[in-house]
Every structure is written in structure tokens, then in C-alpha cells.
Write a protein that binds this DNA or RNA. Structure first.
Length: 426
RNA sequence: GGAGAGAUGGCCGAGUUGGUCGAUGGCGCACGACUCGAAAUCGUGUAGGCGCGCAAGCGUCUCGUGGGUUCGAAUCCCACUCUCUCCGCCA
């Protein structure tokens, strides 16, 4: 969430960001009103409390001296009742304010492009040449099914639509991608590997920004009100929940492989097919806790870390700077590296890298101290996929397919595939 | 799932006949003294949130969380959460 003092002192800045995202600024107006009301109540309550504290002390003195304080006590009983009334009002206003504050999206960075649709994202750089095919390249679902390395039909036996079964060399390729990605980030980019819980409490998803707004998209465990994580970001940000980190330890960089679960009810269209949008998918996620003044540089480095995976895999991509309306509510600035899918004939993100400034850190109450005795400040957090495994799997199939339907294994994955260089029909 | 214990400041650990307790003490840390320097020793200081204020500062809240009783609660009552131990079950 945003600092209420910022919202108070510069509401138009916040309104502008909401409008740039194409959002509704009604919650902002409600929030401002609630805040004003809250502060007025607080002033009254605190004045009465101060009076009560003072008189109670006098009562204690009188009683110790064996005196009679009956009239003071009677007086304070009235004050106490009044305080209770005001406190009830205050609680109500505070709850309202909190509810609205969670809905206000983060600011939007100056250099974020205007717009609310994918077409308005701005390509900032490109890497790799889309391969020339001397045959008609097939979409990944045809390749996968023909090779019998992914089985969508039988997944429905287990879980219904929007799942897949990886099989044989497909299952191995999936593991190879995970192992390769995690190794690149730990060994070359300095991240610490973690394996967090993939089910999290409600408050953890509120902290990450996925609740309350997107509850409909989450798999919910009714029994204990927990959620299957939609991304490892939800787990990783909460690792340091309520902590005050030592500035010396920053930046803290984690990478985690986890399954992710998203119950996105809309579907259909080429870009939702097969491995592109599933209820369950694998993802390697990078996450950083950093000093505020470094977060924009850290975003650049995070994107480079994601791009390195594309490059090592030899998958051509365009790096898109997302327009205001395409970003998640936590982000002030975000990049999506978009991979080329020759079979589908489209560019599709395998990753999204965001700088959240202190928006998430505020929700999760994660701070740091510059030096001993200094007052704690909120850290900045960044997250980025490094990469989404299912989509990367699909991108590999489409980019490395051969005319006979087999798929060449990218050089860097060969060691992870036990030396297998080509996936063909068995 | 059953039984029990517990949750206090950066850490350890007092405090439960309600009344200067935001909290004794120790450790750690910072500064100072002593020292050529250091160790040891001594002294001083050392939580966070919110509100008001240009600021100094003042006020208020916080002893797991939320309610309640009371003029007044870390201390009494209720609910919840979490942690630990033992038993059971289990990969």
C-alpha cells in the first residue's frame, strides 16, 4: 500500500496514477474522507485519554494517602464511557480506511508508457533472429502431442481441463529447464535458492498484493482458509515479514522453483491454449529485497537476469516496457521479455519483472535500518520470473522443432537431459 | 486428532494480592572516562506505530491478536492466533 501521508499531501499524484492505469479513483476519495474523519476522532480520543491518565494518577495518590476520591471516580466513569463510544467509531473508520488503502494501486513511474492495452507496451530492445523455417512450423501442442511428451487428454482424467501430464522426455525436459534456470541464477547471478511453502495464509497473500482484489483467481483451501500460491512471489515476500533487516545484508536475492496455481476462469483464444495458460504451472521466480535508492538499477539487473535465460536457451525475444494499465497493482514499473513462438506466430511473455518500491514492503512490514539507532525505513522489493517453465517448454519446442516432428535439445540443456540431444518419437 | 505448557523491548529474562510498568536486571550495541592502544572496569544512553508541530517537543497506543471488566490492566475475564513438549497418525 501507499504511505497515507503521501496520499494526504499529494492526492492528485495518486489520482493521476490510478487514471493512467485506467482504474477507478472512487476508493481514493473514500480513503481521503476516512483519513480525515479518523484523525479528527483520534484527536478527541487522545485528549480524553490524556485527561483520564492524569486523573487516574491523582486517584491513585489520594487512595494511597487513605483519602476519598469518589467524585473523581464518578467523573472519570463518564469520561471512560465517552472514550469507549469514540473508540468504537474510530475502529470503524480505521477498518474502512484499511479496506480502501489495500485497493489503491501503486504509483506509476514517470517513464512508464501511457496506455492500458498490450499494444501500448513499448519494445525497448530485441535479441535474436527468428529462425527461418523451410517447412511450416507447428504450434507446440501439436509437437508435444505428436511426440507423446505431453498428454492433455489424460490430464483431464485426473483434474479436468487446464492441466497437463508431462511424460517421458517431456517430463525430463521440464526438470531440465527447472534445474538449468535455478543453476544459472544461483551460480551466475548470485541468488540464494529457497524452496518455500506453496500454500500460504490469507494475510500472506494480502501482503504480496494478491488479495483482497484477486480472490476469485486463487485456489482456496476452505478447511483452514489458506491459498495455493499464484506465484512464488507470494511466498518469498513473506519470508522476511515484520522484520527489520540490517542494511549490510541488502540486497537479499532469492530464487525459488515452485508450482503456481491460478484459477483464471476466462479462457479461449490462441494465447490461452495448451501450455500457455493452465490452472497449475511451474515457475522459477527471482525476488529481491533492496535499498530504496538502488531499486531502479536492481530492476534493470533483474531483467538482465531473466534475459540471460532466453539467451542461453537461444530463444529470440523482444523486451517490452509495460504501459500503465498492463502492470500489476504492486508495480511502478515492469518489463516483460516476450519470446518468439514461430508455431503460433506470436510473441508471448515467459517472464515479467517488476519494481514494487515500498508498496509490498509496507503491506508485509519489511524494513531495514541504515545504521544502528537510525529509524527503520521500508525496503524496496522486486520480483521477476526467471522463467515460467511451461511457456519456456513450449517456446523450446516451437523454436527447436524439425521437419520430421522431432525437437533438438538446446545445447545448455543437454547435460540436464542425460546427454539426449534430440527428442524424437520412441 | 488427544493432553499439557507458553507467547514481555535486538536477545535473555523479571514482573500475575490491578495504581508513576513502556516495563527491574543481564547481554548486546553506541558514546564517554581510564589506557600509549586494547582488554577489563566505571559512567551515560539505547523500542516501534500513530496524531499534533517548521522544529525542539508534546500527547497517545503497543507486554501474541481482538474484545471485556475497572476511575485505572503486562497483571482479572472471554475469544482467537501462533510456538513448544508428550501421545497418536503419517511421506
Amino acid at each position: 500500500m501507499l504511505d497515507i501521508r503521501l496520499i494526504r499531501s499529494d492526492p492528485e499524484l495518486v489520482r493521476q496514477s490510478i487514471e493512467r492505469r485506467g482504474g477507478d479513483s472512487a476508493p481514493l476519495d473514500g480513503l481521503l474522507k476516512a483519513d480525515e474523519r479518523r484523525r479528527a476522532l483520534l484527536r478527541d480520543v487522545e485528549a480524553l485519554r490524556a485527561e483520564r491518565n492524569q486523573v487516574s494518577e491523582e486517584i491513585a495518590k489520594i487512595k494511597r494517602g487513605g483519602g476519598d476520591a469518589a467524585d473523581m471516580i464518578a467523573e472519570m466513569r463518564k469520561v471512560g464511557d465517552r472514550i469507549k463510544e469514540l473508540e468504537a467509531d474510530l475502529r470503524e473508520v480505521e477498518a474502512e480506511q484499511d479496506r480502501l488503502a489495500l485497493e489503491i494501486p501503486n504509483l506509476v513511474s514517470e517513464d512508464t508508457p501511457e496506455g492500458t492495452t498490450e499494444e501500448e507496451n513499448v519494445v525497448v530492445r530485441e535479441w535474436g533472429e527468428p529462425r527461418e523455417f523451410d517447412f511450416e512450423p507447428r504450434p507446440h501442442w501439436e509437437i508435444a502431442v505428436n511426440l507423446d511428451i505431453v498428454d492433455f487428454e489424460r490430464a483431464t482424467n485426473i483434474a479436468g481441463a487446464n492441466f497437463e501430464v508431462f511424460k517421458g522426455d517431456g517430463a525430463r525436459l521440464r526438470r531440465a529447464l527447472i534445474g538449468f534456470m535455478v543453476d544459472v541464477h544461483t551460480q551466475e547471478h548470485g541468488y540464494t535458492e529457497v524452496a518455500p511453502p506453496i500454500i500460504a495464509r490469507r494475510d500472506s497473500l494480502v501482503a504480496s498484493g494478491h488479495l483482497p482484489k484477486f480472490e476469485d483467481d486463487q485456489f482456496h483451501v476452505r478447511e483452514n482458509d489458506m491459498f495455493l500460491i499464484p506465484t512464488a512471489e507470494a511466498s518469498l515476500v513473506n519470508i522476511h515479514r515484520d522484520e527489520v533487516l540490517d542494511a549490510q545484508t541488502l540486497p537479499v536475492s532469492y530464487v525459488a522453483y515452485t508450482p503456481c496455481f491460478r484459477f483464471e476462469k476466462f479462457s479461449g483464444g490462441k494465447e490461452s491454449r495448451a501450455l500457455i495458460r493452465q490452472y497449475q504451472f511451474d515457475k522459477v521466480e527471482m525476488f529481491k529485497f533492496v535499498l530504496p535508492e538502488t531499486s531502479m538499477d536492481e530492476l534493470e539487473s533483474l531483467v538482465r537476469n531473466a534475459e540471460a535465460v532466453y539467451q542461453r536457451l537461444g530463444i529470440p525475444y523482444k523486451l517490452a516496457l509495460l504501459c500503465a494499465g498492463e502492470m500489476g497493482i504492486q508495480a511502478v514499473k515492469a518489463y516483460d521479455p516476450m519470446a518468439w513462438f514461430p508455431g503460433m506466430g506470436s510473441w508471448l511473455e515467459l517472464s515479467s519483472c517488476s519494481n514494487c518500491l515500498d508498496y509490498q514492503a509496507r503491506r508485509a512490514n519489511i524494513r531495514f535500518r541504515r545504521e544502528r539507532g537510525a529509524r527503520p525505513e521500508f525496503v524496496h522489493t522486486l520480483n521477476g520470473s526467471g522463467l515460467a517453465v511451461g511457456r519456456t517448454f513450449a517456446a523450446v519446442l516451437e523454436n527447436y522443432q524439425q521437419e520430421d516432428g522431432s525437437v533438438v535439445v538446446p545445447e545448455v540443456l543437454v547435460p540436464y537431459m542425460g546427454g539426449t540431444r534430440v527428442i524424437g518419437r520412441n
